[in-house]
Design a protein around this nucleic acid. Structure first.
Length: 617
RNA sequence: GGGCCUGUAGCAUAGCCCGGAUCAUGCACCUGCCUUCUAAGCAGGAGUACUGGGGUUCGAAUCCCCACAGGCCCGCCA
């Protein structure tokens, strides 16, 4: 990979037991340490292992730049590289060690490398890429959208990033629990309870008109719950703003909810319905949650009071003249002109941030690592949370992963301005376009299978599109790009997987039945020469374990999408250039192993990014 | 006004944390390739790009400073 591809090179981080690079790095740094020491160098092997980089493909597999090392030895880098390369003893893993410029370049022995990579992949099968089990439990909270209506694509970026992070952390060896924090407290939640406590026919005229209800006021059969129950939300918000008596009755309702006078099953009914609708959309994208935590639970279990009590003894504590209580976070990056994080209103009722602290304390009591996936609009609130946690005497902090907004070409998405693109719209449109594409190429498939493939291709394309960009970059949503089925897209990867699957079906001679699992080859099975396309593919396959480790550490989930594309691309290049099924015996079985290993890696990486690997399309 | 993030070919992006070998990929554009393993593919071409200016370094897209441009935020809402 390295300079040759767009995906990242395997990092230096220690990877799991099935990483072919671990032994290679070890051998190279071992040999280099001995050689350099004999030339008067005094550093450590660890130092070298860190400096050892993955070289530009074609030039070197592993490379050590000597510029820094040459200086204290009083030698020229080029000349030092030459003597080092000449002094490295031969080994079975490396065919050649050469000096170019100031670099010492290690070139892999192709057959040994092919063998170790195929063995790693075919030996571990669906576990290839996974790291060794790690001590400790991780909580990843993501999405946590207010259940006031259908999810828009902007928010679903949170889900895609969060769900992928959950998958990759699991693969890296952590025990992971995913949580959705459900907001059923406050004005927004009360608004829905307020309007839905009456039948639509009893709603104020303005709200009915703006909600565009069907004439009979009944929910259409095919309308999802989140769309139906969320429909009056924007107009209710506007209505309450303009009608004093409505505002008063809403405030009254909020009080009754927050004081516990209203049974929680009564005010959770509508949010629960909407949440179900949202979740069914998320399931289409392969995302689900282990646990749901309802915000209102922290209202009545005494935990907020405990936080407040603790905070009152903190030097950060501030109390305004009118009784509102806050915490000072000016030293923690809160704005100098408003460094206060309020935890209670002047009437003594609790505010959202303190419930969030109670929630995080609960997380810390159960988990060793706490990760929050948040939109960049919540960055400052996260800082406020840190200040409150500090005041509450909690030393641990959540790891916050923020992502940029998804805007439309004409500007920001707004629910009230009617300028939104809902996730459901995008998924439906993607599926419809995929149906056309499948029909164009396959005339032999049953309608049911066409639909199934199209759903998977469509939702995969959407998920991939939201994932492939570095999280902190803002995205401008364009339909043509989100719904592209070629190039850097999920269908491109799924297609490669289907292609590999088809080859293997033909190789085993039956078009259906379970796929045979080829055994890892032995040295005798390998052809004497390997083709560059075969080597390039193997090189990519070998990098999954290092990548899983790197992504789980750095949380750069977009790299997984780019890696998936690279593997698929290299399979395609291999496929186009070389025959598999009708090649001569030693080559044929080797290539079948290579295809099987590629299919396995594609399947594993698609699993990591939450896209379904398709057997045919 | 202040804070955080981002700026790479016509468009969209990777590489930036941790400086290293001619800056990589996709879309769009041009030329080829389906009577042999799925053309959602492959081969080739053109295009030209690290926002601008300083600095550090043997070496800067990468680190530092300044400027400019875009995103987000600066509620006793959640």
């Amino acid at each position: 990979m390295g300079g040759g591809g767009s995906a990242p090179a395997a990092g230096n981080a220690a990877s799991g037991p099935n990483d072919p690079w671990v032994a290679l790095r070890e051998q190279a740094s071992e040999a280099l340490t001995h050689t350099l020491r004999s030339l008067g160098w005094t550093g450590t092997k660890e130092e070298l292992a860190r400096a050892l980089e993955v070289g530009p493909e074609g030039k070197a597999d592993l490379a050590l730049p000597l510029f820094r090392l040459a200086k204290p030895l009083g030698r020229r880098p080029e000349e030092l590289a030459t003597s080092v390369a000449a002094a490295i003893p031969p080994s079975p893993a490396f065919a050649q060690v050469s000096a170019v410029g100031g670099f010492v370049n290690f070139h892999l022995e192709p057959r040994a490398f092919a063998l170790s990579t195929l063995r790693a992949v075919l030996g571990a099968e669906e576990h290839y890429g996974e790291g060794a089990p790690k001590e400790g439990k991780v909580c990843v909270e993501h999405t946590s959208a207010n259940p006031t209506g259908p999810l828009h694509v902007g928010r679903s970026r949170n889900t895609v990033i969060g769900d992928t992070l959950v998958r990759v952390l699991r693969a890296a060896g952590w025990k992971v629990t995913s949580q959705f924090y459900v907001d059923d407290v406050g004005r927004q939640a009360a608004m829905l309870v307020w309007i839905w406590s009456r039948a639509p026919s009893d709603w104020p005229q303005e709200i009915r008109d703006a909600s565009q209800l069907p004439p009979d006021g009944a929910r259409p059969k095919d309308l999802k719950a989140d769309h139906w129950y969320g429909r009056p939300y924007p107009s209710t918000a506007a209505y309450v703003k303009e009608h004093k008596e409505a505002a008063r009755s809403l405030a009254d309702l909020t009080d009754r909810m927050e004081s516990g006078a209203l049974p929680k099953e009564e005010y959770r009914r509508v949010p629960r319905e909407i949440l179900e609708g949202i979740l069914s959309s998320l399931r289409r994208m392969g995302a689900s949650f282990d646990e749901f935590v309802w915000e209102s639970d922290f209202l009545f279990d005494g935990s907020v009071e405990r936080v407040a009590e603790k905070a009152r003894t903190s030097p950060r504590y501030r109390r305004a003249d009118d009784g509102a209580e806050a915490v000072d976070g000016s030293d923690l990056g809160l704005p100098k002109d408003s460094p206060l994080v309020y935890m209670t209103r002047s009437d003594g009722t609790f505010l959202y941030p303190i419930r969030d602290v109670a929630y995080h304390l609960q997380k810390f009591s159960r988990f060793d690592r706490v990760v929050d996936v948040l939109g960049e609009d919540h960055k400052l609130h996260a800082r406020g949370l840190m200040a409150l946690l500090d005041a509450a005497g909690e030393k641990r902090r959540p790891e916050v992963l923020t992502y940029g907004f998804i805007n439309l070409p004409e500007g920001r998405m707004t629910t009230r301005g009617g300028r939104v693109v809902n996730l459901d719209q995008v998924l439906d449109e993607a599926r419809d376009r995929a149906v056309e594409e499948v029909r164009k190429r396959r005339h032999d498939l049953a309608e049911e299978e066409v639909q199934r493939i199209a759903e998977s291709v469509g939702s995969g394309a959407v998920r991939f599109h939201l994932l492939r960009v570095q999280p902190e970059k803002p995205i401008v949503f364009r339909w043509e790009e989100a719904l592209s089925f070629e190039g850097k897209s999920a269908p491109f990867v799924q297609y490669a997987h289907a292609r590999a699957s088809s080859l293997l079906r033909k190789a085993q001679g039956s078009d259906d039945g379970p796929m045979a699992r080829p055994a890892p080859p032995s040295a005798a099975d390998l052809p004497p020469e390997l083709h560059p396309k075969e080597l390039a593919l193997l090189r990519s396959l070998s990098e999954l374990p290092g990548l899983v480790e790197k992504v789980s550490e750095g949380r750069s989930v977009h790299l997984l999408a780019l890696y998936a594309h690279e593997v698929a691309e290299r399979l395609n290049e291999f496929y186009q250039e070389l025959r598999v099924l009708n090649s001569e015996p030693p080559v044929r079985s080797f290539r079948i192993s290579l295809v099987a290993a590629t299919r396995q890696v594609l399947s594993n990486v698609l699993g990591l990014i939450g896209v379904e690997p398709l057997e045919r399309m």
